[in-house]
Simulated scan of single mutants.
Amino acid sequence: MNLTTVQPARHPRPTTKASALAYLIFDRPDLAKAERFLNDFGLRTVSRDSERMFLRGTGAAPFCYVARKAAKARFVGFGLRVNSRADLEALSRVPGASSDVESSKWPGGGYRVGLVDPSGFRVDAIFGQAPASALPHRPPLPLNSVDAAVRINGTQRPPVGAPDVIRLGHVVLELADFQQTCAWYTQHFGFIPSDVQVLPDGSPAVTFMRLDLGTTPADHHSVALAQGFAPLYSHSAYEVVDADAVGMGQRVLREQGWTHAWGIGRHILGSQVFDYWQDPWGDKHEHYCDGDLFTEDAPLGVHAVSREAMSQWGPTMPRSFTKPRFTPASVAALIRNLRHSPDVTVEKLKTLAKLFA
Results as ranks from 00 to 15, higher is better:
316 T>Y: 04
310 M>N: 07
296 E>R: 15
304 A>M: 14
305 V>I: 14
309 A>Y: 03
300 L>S: 08
300 L>M: 11
281 W>F: 06
313 W>E: 01
291 G>V: 00
292 D>K: 09
281 W>Y: 13
319 R>K: 06
327 T>A: 11
317 M>K: 02
306 S>W: 02
325 R>K: 11
293 L>Y: 10
310 M>W: 03
316 T>R: 05
318 P>H: 02
282 G>T: 03
290 D>G: 15
308 E>F: 00
303 H>Q: 02
280 P>I: 13
297 D>G: 06
279 D>H: 08
308 E>I: 13
304 A>F: 07
318 P>Q: 07
305 V>T: 14
321 F>N: 11
296 E>L: 01
294 F>H: 15
294 F>P: 06
312 Q>E: 07
290 D>N: 15
311 S>D: 01
288 Y>S: 06
299 P>M: 04
311 S>W: 00
290 D>H: 12
279 D>F: 10
292 D>Q: 14
325 R>A: 13
283 D>A: 15
285 H>C: 11
307 R>W: 00
296 E>M: 09
286 E>S: 08
319 R>P: 03
286 E>T: 09
299 P>K: 13
310 M>D: 01
326 F>I: 13
287 H>K: 05
281 W>A: 07
306 S>M: 12
281 W>H: 04
298 A>P: 04
295 T>M: 09
324 P>W: 02
294 F>Y: 14
288 Y>T: 01
313 W>I: 08
283 D>V: 07
281 W>D: 15
306 S>D: 06
285 H>E: 02
293 L>A: 14
301 G>P: 02
306 S>F: 03
327 T>S: 13
303 H>D: 00
302 V>T: 12
310 M>C: 12
308 E>Q: 12
294 F>S: 04
284 K>Y: 04
316 T>W: 08
289 C>N: 08
316 T>F: 07
327 T>N: 04
320 S>E: 10
299 P>W: 05
308 E>T: 12
302 V>G: 09
310 M>H: 06
315 P>M: 08
280 P>S: 12
307 R>H: 01
291 G>W: 00
282 G>V: 09
297 D>P: 09
306 S>I: 10
309 A>E: 09
325 R>V: 11
300 L>P: 03
317 M>I: 11
324 P>Y: 01
303 H>L: 00
295 T>V: 09
314 G>M: 05
279 D>L: 14
310 M>I: 03
285 H>W: 00
321 F>D: 15
289 C>D: 10
281 W>L: 08
291 G>R: 06
293 L>R: 15
319 R>D: 14
293 L>C: 10
314 G>P: 08
296 E>P: 04
279 D>A: 12
313 W>S: 00
